[in-house]
Design a protein around this nucleic acid. Structure first.
Lengths: 182, 182
DNA sequence: ACCTGAACACCGTTCAAGT
DNA sequence: ACCTGAACACCGTTCAAGT
């Protein structure tokens, strides 16, 4: 619906924003490059000026979704409790876009800016808690898997409150185990 | 390559077997109804006589993959240790078809015969261990998420032995936590 | 640099028809 | 009951061309 010679004025962040809307409205199956182009009223291949391909789009979506998860001060009095708070806020954030969650597994995690930031903060907190350096990657991975997996199955069946309670209980057990490893 | 009037003689289990081969050879993206039909040398729509649709095919694949996971005797001396053994053997089985693992999340778990059998065995073991009835679904869910999630990320980066060690450690912490709940 | 038209090589699924 | 031919309504991505 543009005049001749008029630019669409697409933007990478406009593309990502529209992708989030398509995902929310049409779900995982509805998130296609062509549906995204239709929503933006551009030709399908116009997207490739702003995103490398569909995997690149999804990876950006996954990482950007973690942006609102803030990291606690690394000098917190109880570092392991701070890790727990991070994981609870990650879990809550994941549930805000349930259709995105399985994609973390399909893409084997997020690897962008925010994922790195959160991972580095966790590592610093583990170190300050006295977790031996060689145990840190395993501990970090286990907690991430717990949050992602719990979020993936939370929307599956039944009661959200019960799902969150199970997540919180499991998180506590894992943190206790990690603490005991010192 | 059949003569006129000659039946292909397709079978549901032949379809599933070929699907496993396609998945192993061509990966998740390569597993398409049409690629499966090509391998079986039938028309694509011939598959729909043996499988309801692609989701039904995947669901069958997911559940059948758990068939070799045997359940321990429910009168085992240490019921929680028996649950631990079940989860370790599930984890190992999952790693035999890494491409299948993300599909458990996309399909939100397996819900067929074998998934039900393993779930019922876990519940019986938890009950025998003295876990309160209202805690059993959460405990079961948490352990399943841990096994599936650990398997999903095991093939992602690096050392399989380290991944398995992290899985085993996490499993122990979760079982300790579940035991403490009694 | 950014966008379009057109095309390529695919998908899952349905329908009518044949045996 | 089982299978095929043909079609429908899509995909992701590339390429050449226009501004």
């Amino acid at each position: 619906m543009r005049g001749p010679g008029e630019r669409a004025g697409l933007t990478r962040s406009a593309v990502l924003g529209a992708a989030r809307e398509v995902l929310a409205e049409a779900g995982l199956r509805g998130l296609t490059m062509r549906a995204l182009a239709r929503r933006l009223e551009v030709a399908p291949n116009a997207l490739y000026s702003h995103v490398p391909d569909k995997d690149g789009l999804v990876d950006a979506l996954l990482d950007e979704h973690l942006a609102p998860v803030t990291d606690p001060p690394t000098d917190s009095a109880d570092p392991l409790a701070a890790v727990g708070a991070m994981m609870r806020s990650t879990y809550d954030r994941l549930l805000e876009a349930p259709d995105l969650v399985p994609l973390y597994f399909a893409r084997r995690g997020a690897r962008g800016e925010h994922a790195r930031r959160l991972g580095a903060t966790m590592d610093a907190l583990f170190a300050r808690a006295g977790v031996p350096a060689e145990s840190i990657p395993g501990a970090r991975g286990t907690l991430i898997v717990h949050a992602l997996g719990s979020a993936a199955f939370a929307t599956a069946g039944g009661d959200p409150a019960a799902s969150r309670a199970a997540f919180t209980a499991g998180l506590g057990w894992l943190l206790t185990g990690i603490a005991a490893q010192r």
